[in-house]
Design a protein around this nucleic acid. Structure first.
Lengths: 114, 114
DNA sequence: CATCTTGTACGACAAAAACCATACTACGAG
DNA sequence: CTCGTAGTATGGTTTTTGTCGTACAAGATG
């Protein structure tokens, strides 16, 4: 369960108005990070970092999640030792209408054809 | 006017099926290249490299146009000494429906709010 | 408390990217 | 033919990025 201590360990996220399109695109241009976003969108709920089973080391994993967070693509919060990740769908849709949907669709069809 | 010699100087473009979403996103994550694409979309026609008046040197300019071409975002062809550039709207729309429109819209609203 | 699980911090490294200057090619115009 | 214009090629520098390993921190669990 999330505790008060968890909340204090929480980390900074850019406010909605600071999210830049260039940052979002750079974040999603990496295949590992795009995969994370796709799995997050498919799940529809928060997922811990370890749940993704990414083919990289722990520290690289931390790096990728930080890039996604600083770009404003995901929201992170602690729950015990786990860091839960969550798509910032609301903010992205408000800022860039249709973009997330088009990106997820594009990524999906590309995988299907591979 | 375009000549036979012009055609022989033409350069390789990736076929539609080789265009990767990651490459397109990486290409568009650079502000200079996004600006080129936006101006191309707004113009609706081909434009020579020099017509963009980009704030970088000639060689850097060549570099950015090559990245866009190799990502499959633009088509280039010679006309005299000028290299004409053209958005690959048809291919992008076929591969990634709605993506280009969402990107252009997003880039446009971002500039408006700046 | 001891230990396991999760994740972070830091330092290092190689590869890629963005940039420039210089030298060059190719076409067009005088 | 000569010169100007448009762009390429090459090679260099600097910055950024993706990756890792090691050491550490904090909560969960025995």
């Amino acid at each position: 369960m999330a505790t008060v201590a968890d909340a204090q360990r929480d980390v900074d996220h850019p406010p909605r108005e600071d999210i830049r399109l260039a940052g979002v695109l750079a974040a999603l241009a990496d295949p590992i990070r795009m995969r994370v976003v796709r799995e997050l969108a498919a799940a529809g709920t928060t997922k811990s970092c370890v749940a993704f089973e990414l083919p990289v080391s722990k520290s690289t994993c931390t790096h990728h999640f930080r890039v996604l967070r600083e770009a404003g693509v995901i929201r992170q919060s602690y729950r015990g030792t786990a860091r839960m990740n969550d798509l910032r769908r609301d903010d992205l849709d408000a800022l860039f209408p249709g973009l997330l949907a088009a990106l997820l669709l594009a990524a999906g069809t590309e995988v299907d054809h591979a």
